[in-house]
């Protein structure tokens, strides 16, 4: 059986975490491709409702970074 790779929805703050994700790209860091990022203007924008929505839609994990 293939190793379990969790599907992750990540809410990233435009000013830090999203910039960090861009920088990871500029630095060519490699990481698993199972993450889907949603840009928000602040991690404070992330309503708990969004997190629940992500789980409801089938994601295995939710990352809020900011």
């Amino acid at each position: 059986m293939a190793e379990f790779e969790p599907k992750i929805v990540a809410f990233l703050c435009n000013w830090c975490a999203y910039a960090g994700a861009d920088l990871a790209g500029v630095s060519r860091l490699q990481y698993p491709s199972s993450i889907r990022t949603v840009r928000v203007m602040c991690s404070g924008r992330v309503d708990p409702m969004f997190v629940l929505e992500a789980f409801k839609d089938g994601s295995d994990g939710v990352l809020v970074a900011g």
Binding site: A21, A24, V26, S33
Partner: peptide
Amino acid sequence: NQCTWVHS
């Protein structure tokens, strides 16, 4: 930045 560069 968040795809081809990090999953090359």
